[in-house]
Computed example of a mutant assay.
Amino acid sequence: MAVNYDQIVVGGGRDAVAQALALEEQGQAVALVIPANGTAYDPVIVREAVDLVIRSGSISMAALRTAVAQIADSRSASDRRLLAEAGVEVLTGDVQFTDATTITVQAGIVIERISAPSIILACGTAAAPIGRGFGEATSVVTAENWLSLENLPESMVIVGAGETGLEHAILLSRLGVEVTVVDEHSNVFELCGGLMDLNLFEAQSLGVAFRLNDEVIGVESRSTGKALVVRLSSGRQLIADAAMTCVGRVGRTNGLNLEAIGVGLDEEGRAWCDAEGHTWVPSIIAVGAVVGFRAEPALVG
């Protein structure tokens, strides 16, 4: 038999926690369901960690990983304390929708069934998988797993001059890494606006190099010297210790069984919604980055 709530929020990031707390403040009985693989990479935490290691004067990947773990643990403990004080029930495990109002959460051999008349998807997005053209070198990373590099690279090629690419170009440059950003657009300002304009100017002031109107067509490992040769469509080659792909995001919806209950997902796994965030299933609302391209109103409901 399912345990009933007024609202269920699905997700493990800041948006999900904020949604759960806001609903509880309205006097609703709320469950926050955190998928086992649903805790998103948080660039805010990484920025704080970069500031910390720079102030310490001990800049290394090991120091950065330690700082990220400490800040993340502190943030998680603070969130759980706030959720507990507010009376939000928190469940973590493998999550599946069984129908429009019911979810199962499995942690080990324990399976819990919970239901609510309204369920909010706030599970966010993850970096898109690395394309085939980038090979299988361990020094080719995404914006979410670059902390797994054994050592801080002396040089890095970042593919994509969007928000994620610029943000990581700034972080790495501040850590002393020589960064080159490659993007197919001829004018990065076409991608920018507001905060991104400021990021672009900061990246330029830090000495980030830009290769525009160009695309990466292949990445090859080297046996000596710098680890990678990055081949561009212009015929140029960039030599670097590592490369990071910052092109594309995918919804953290894999395994949730959403399509089986009627929720439409786009090619990137994000939920089709109307202007108010309602998915094709009226009881399920999506918020934040997991919202895909808006569907035509006639397709919703």
Rank of each mutant, 00 (worst) to 15 (best):
L195T: 14
L149T: 03
R252I: 01
Q19V: 04
S283R: 15
L256V: 05
A84K: 14
V53D: 03
V287S: 06
G269T: 05
R80N: 14
A286R: 02
A16T: 03
V17C: 08
V50L: 04
D241C: 09
Q237F: 15
G11P: 00
N257D: 04
T224C: 12
Y41Q: 07
A240G: 07
T98I: 14
P35M: 13
R80Y: 11
N4A: 15
T279E: 04
E48C: 01
R81S: 12
L82S: 13
L200T: 03
L212D: 03
S56K: 11
P117Y: 10
N4M: 00
F210Q: 05
G135W: 15
A128L: 12
A122Y: 02
V88W: 05
R81M: 03
E25M: 02
G93L: 10
P43H: 04
A72H: 04
S234D: 05
E25K: 09
L152V: 14
V219R: 01
V290Y: 00
A137M: 09
P282Y: 10
T142F: 00
D183T: 10
S233V: 01
A29H: 00
S56A: 12
A20Q: 02
A243L: 11
L121N: 09
A169E: 01
E25Y: 08
C123W: 08
N213M: 12
A69M: 15
